[in-house]
Design a binder for these strands. Structure first.
Lengths: 468, 468
DNA sequence: GGGTATTTGTCCGTATGTATG
DNA sequence: TCATACATACGGACAAATACC
């Protein structure tokens, strides 16, 4: 018991007390120290190791708390009877994924990616500060189970935001917080019942389409024009639910004008139990003219379900979305008898609540709007010089543009030529629910993740290589 | 422009530059400062306000970044043309929920809650430290979109944990990270296909039951004995999938012995496409004997789907669970053509990865096991004194016990008497898929959230009031 | 056998370095 | 640049058990 020689490394990344702890724990687990055996006293060990007693104390405390040893006052520390050591000592080594292989160099020098945010766009320091604040709070009630629909605080903050920024008046009790739109759509499918015929535009946000398809939903593909979804198509196809993105349709980029919005609302109100799922996609970023209030803002009869997210406006890694249910649907959900527990950690909810409440979100959006407007304007400037090659649409909102070749170039050929020049652009056909007969001639360019310098370089190249 | 008087408060919770920023922004939004108007120079304003010029600069910089004002070199700052002010100035005030009412006093002095963790059990300091480390990392790639199945790092760490602690050998590529078991079960339902007949014990973990029911799943209720689920019932009812909790069944608390595990595996392997969903509930907490490896550890033919979570072992607010899919199912999921994006924020994943990798999780589990063992032993000591009132089971594992009255008391009456004494206990009938004919006479006592002092007080009372 | 010195776990205040704002 | 908070490490004071004379 006295020959306990613990090799202490000054420069270890672990503190001394941890090294002592680890060493003794290993001795016990390997069976070198048996149950009942007495450990050297903290003073003795401290002297032998030439460190302070309290350092040894800390290690011993930890070991007692975990049940490895037991403290007998005025006598000493003794190794406990460990029944069923939990962790086997052997460690499994997993083979490297690419043994010996180099990570393949990225094929593209420039990527007009459609998701992602501007580099440096995430308010990292603020987030860290708020995270610290939240985690420093007294008490650990924060770590017990929370409200299944989301913390009351963040729901109130979101309701206030929706009121002032999106013209949506709702009660915090109508809001459900969830980890991403995918999840909320799954939830919505449960709430709405499984026999709905949901209409979606073609092309549309394919992720939402697949979410619903994989749940077993019946999807009807309907047409769209420059104003958005075709209402007649809705009637014709017998849909009872429709998924739309009025503020900036993905991928086509059109903003649904007020008139069409009203027509759509009228369609929903025409019959009982018709619902509009309004994905308020990219509503945060508008560069010209008055923002149009969300459809849900005009809804008097409770037929609009509003979906919003922080994943696009803050960062894709922040998995927080929200859904505003009409009172009747919320009641239906609550009366299911079992609520799905909330999917966002309470700490993240608290951080976001502070972020909203203290005005950081508003300022963040203002800053990002300015950043994206610059990139947007740059893109538009170059595209105007390319009028002999393509027309473009989807401008003045969002963070991507739609190009339609007018020189005979096809989508496929356009993408191929861009790829050869090291530029990744995206085809509209990737977002179609159902392919169209005639050859596609449109591509999508997202500019959120691109630096302005890169936009200039890439656009200059595109102008060259897309010439016929 | 020169009469810009900004009321600065020294003791405000906002820094000075923020106060200047807020004031000017308000002036612009309210229209008191119009587009094109010149702002006082930073030197002049600083002099007037008796503060440093750099403070004014900070405010002006912020305002320029957000597009409110524009810096014209060698001339000054000018108010920009703001098209479509985003945030309406009026704030909506939401009515208080209980106007004038007091929050109702909790009806119970003691609560043998079945969820929740020990007070102070969450390693708050460690979590905060790791959170800071993760958020301090260079670059913001962390905030871009991550792997839809979860970060490779945490999947590897979980695979290593499962190998050493649960005897499960799997590749990190078989693991899917998700926000809670509810979500993973929804996902699983998509992966397995919708026409499955899923068998569940009665009683069982009702949350999982409702998850599946609400998805439209066909559930078959099967019997159980002291060893766990009845295999013959499975055969008889034509189930092709079964949901079990071999390590500590909820709510009945039995641990499935090795023999039954093997029989269950044999059942699954008997026919093609039979699956076992193994919810490794409470496997972290075992107080006696060797831990039994998870079912998935014996599975050679890929018919066990393993579910694990950190919500119970760390804190309910940490919404991270994981699912190990047999290779064939993982392949099926990946080939769906669209993966649901991961529901856990990348920061949380990274924090948890470090928590596992640096050995904190192992130590945390050891500590909690010691804490819960003390409470467990205390409960058992009191229950042994109550043998004239009830028998108990579910001991030596988990954080709750099952009591069966042997003095004629019914569940209902037992709960009622406890309530009168200010003690909340839970009925087994709350967890039944289908009620049984004969009167229930079992209650559940969770001890995780109770302090030892409270356990003693409450148990002494129960011993009195449950006497016949 | 009783007094005393020693050893022991435990509690507490304090110094130092680092991270953070 | 300065102030604050925190984890870590240190050493003193105390009371109880033990060993020794």
């Amino acid at each position: 018991m006295n020959d306990l020689l613990i090799p202490l490394k000054e420069d270890s990344r672990f503190p001394m007390y941890r090294q002592i702890y680890d060493h003794i724990k290993n001795e016990i687990q390997k069976g070198k120290m048996k149950a009942g055996e007495k450990l050297p006293s903290s003073r003795l060990l401290a002297k032998n190791l030439c460190i302070s007693r309290s350092t040894v104390d800390m290690a011993y405390d930890q070991l007692s708390a975990e049940g490895y040893i037991e403290a007998v006052p005025c006598k000493g520390y003794y190794v406990c009877q460990m029944e069923g050591l939990y962790f086997s000592t052997e460690k499994k080594v997993f083979p490297e994924k690419n043994p010996g292989q180099e990570i393949p160099a990225p094929a593209y020098r420039w990527d007009f990616a459609l998701n992602g945010i501007a580099p440096g766009g995430f308010p990292q320091n603020t987030w860290r500060k708020l995270s610290r604040e939240v985690l420093s709070q007294e008490g650990d009630s924060l770590f017990q189970l929370g409200d299944p629909c989301g913390e009351p605080g963040i729901r109130l903050a979101v309701a206030e935001y929706l009121h002032s920024a999106r013209g949506v008046d709702c009660d915090p009790d109508q809001i459900i917080i969830g980890a991403g739109n995918d999840y909320l759509l799954m939830l919505l499918w449960v709430i709405l019942g499984k026999n709905r015929k949901i209409a979606m535009e073609n092309p549309t946000y394919l992720s939402a389409y697949y979410d619903l398809v994989h749940m077993g939903c019946q999807i009807i593909s309907v047409g769209q024009d420059s104003q958005g979804i075709c209402i007649e198509d809705l009637e014709k196809n017998g849909a009872d639910t429709v998924y739309v993105m009025p503020s900036h349709q993905f991928p086509m980029g059109m903003v649904m004008p007020l008139k069409r919005r009203m027509e759509l609302l009228k369609w929903a109100q025409d019959q009982e139990k018709r619902y509009i799922i309004e994905d308020d996609y990219d509503s945060e970023f508008r560069y010209k003219g008055q923002p149009i209030p969300a459809l849900a803002g005009f809804d008097q009869k409770g037929c609009v379900i509003y979906l919003g997210t922080f994943s696009k406006s803050l960062a894709p890694s922040v998995r927080v979305s929200y859904m505003v249910l009409p009172p009747a649907l919320m009641e239906a959900y609550l009366s299911l008898g079992h609520l799905f527990s909330v999917t966002v950690s309470r700490t993240d909810q608290k951080i976001l609540e502070l972020f909203l409440r203290e005005g950081y979100y508003e300022r963040h959006l203002n800053r990002m709007r300015a950043v994206y407007k610059n990139k947007h304007d740059l893109m538009v400037r170059y595209l105007k010089e390319m009028s002999h090659i393509c027309a473009f649409s989807g401008e003045n909102a969002g963070v991507h543009l739609v190009l339609r070749f007018c020189n005979g170039l096809t989508e496929k050929e356009g993408i191929r030529r861009a790829k050869e020049a090291g530029i990744k652009v995206y085809g509209v056909s990737d977002y179609r629910i159902r392919q169209v007969e005639k050859e596609e001639n449109m591509v999508l360019l997202g500019y959120a993740t691109m630096e302005e310098k890169d936009i200039e370089e890439a656009m200059k190249k595109l102008k060259e290589i897309w010439k016929i």
